[in-house]
């Protein structure tokens, strides 16, 4: 690369005509003019928020994404002035917004609630802006700007994200999460919105969070199957798998009981502290039910009796997915 050549000497050029003070002055000016301070502050905040394991990779992606957004933003403006709202360019723009929204959703794991919620908000606003009645001046907005904005109050966006775009987002989230399309299809069916519907923020957030948790869940289920089956001996025995699935189901029921209870009590808003404790206890109970000890117990019982035959990984995955999907609430 050409720039590598230029970096060859770390020593600044000696023939600098000015003294030190004016140089650093102009440097400061240059940096503030180019907005470097703002740029780096935004990047560091994002990085600290996401606590990525690979901070360098995170920054590389972050700046690449920003650069492509600003470059595309400039190009988009030009496009807009030449062929206003041509069907092709609006489709491409939609795709671009979808990509950016997905990028934001990927930034933080859903267990980091505040970061994740921020990113869902940003993604929602981005997708909401894709409506055709958008003012051109809003195009080059940096991804960080909208963090603290209200939900698209003043923007040109419509009353919500288009249903089709919402479904597409969920689909991408699942496939990026490593979930095979056949496994995620029933979930997507359940969360599905009609293409013409406008999806409000709550529904959007619920769907996104569900898909994120589902991806994690399916990965765990796949790992669980790998534990049950010995790779040399072919597929795992059906009775073992059923025992594991049974344990999983029991645990899910335990944790769900807590959800239902909390929903009822949330309206009263009395003794919220006690409620929180109860909730925590239920979760602990649930996790105790899928503890290695419990699993081992169930499996050793199943080994002696239970149906013969085998269960392959796909069947196990589907069964586990089914347990999850039947417990997904549908918001309307």
């Amino acid at each position: 690369m050409a720039d590598k050549e230029k970096r060859r000497s770390g020593v600044p050029p000696s023939g600098m005509p000015e003294g030190k003070a004016p140089k650093s002055d102009s440097d400061g000016e240059f940096l503030s003019q180019a907005g470097v301070g703002e740029l780096l502050r935004g990047a560091i905040l994002k990085m600290v928020e996401a606590r990525s394991d690979d901070p360098i990779g995170f920054l590389a992606d972050h700046f690449c994404n920003l650069a492509s957004v600003t470059e595309a933003g400039r190009a988009g403006c030009d496009d807009g002035s030449q062929l206003s709202n041509g069907p092709l360019s609006s489709g491409a723009q939609e795709q671009q917004h979808l990509n950016r929204a997905l990028w934001h959703l990927r930034l933080a794991h859903h267990s980091q609630r505040s970061a994740f919620s921020n990113n869902v908000r940003v993604a929602y606003d981005l997708l909401n802006f894709t409506q055709p009645c958008r003012r051109p001046g809003e195009v080059p907005e940096g991804p960080d700007d909208s963090c603290n904005d209200g939900p698209t109050k003043g923007g040109g966006g419509g009353g919500g994200v288009k249903g089709g775009l919402y479904s597409q987002t969920l689909q991408c989230l699942c496939s990026e999460g490593g979930v095979p399309a056949s496994t995620s299809a029933p979930l997507l069916q359940r969360l599905h919105c009609q293409d013409h519907e406008a999806v409000p923020y709550d529904v959007f957030r619920h769907g996104v969070l569900t898909c994120a948790v589902f991806s994690d869940y399916i990965r765990q289920a796949q790992r669980l199957y790998a534990e049950v089956c010995c790779p040399d001996e072919g597929p795992a025995s059906r009775s073992l798998c059923l025992a594991v699935l049974g344990t999983l189901k029991e645990a899910l029921e335990t944790s769900q009981g807590c959800d239902a209870k909390c929903c009822v009590n949330a309206n009263c808003k009395v003794n919220s502290c006690v409620e929180a404790n109860l909730k925590a206890i239920r979760y602990l109970e649930a996790s105790a039910k899928i503890s290695p000890y419990k699993l081992a117990q169930a499996m050793s019982e199943a080994r002696t009796r239970g149906p013969g035959g085998n269960m392959d990984a796909k069947e196990f995955e589907n069964a586990a997915a089914d347990l999850f999907i039947t417990r997904v609430k549908v918001l309307s």
Binding site: A34, L40, L59, A60, F63, C64, L66, A67, T70
Partner: peptide
């Protein structure tokens, strides 16, 4: 552009 520079650097 400065952003592209940082993207290339990282």
């Amino acid at each position: 552009g400065v952003i592209r520079y940082f993207a290339e650097y990282f």
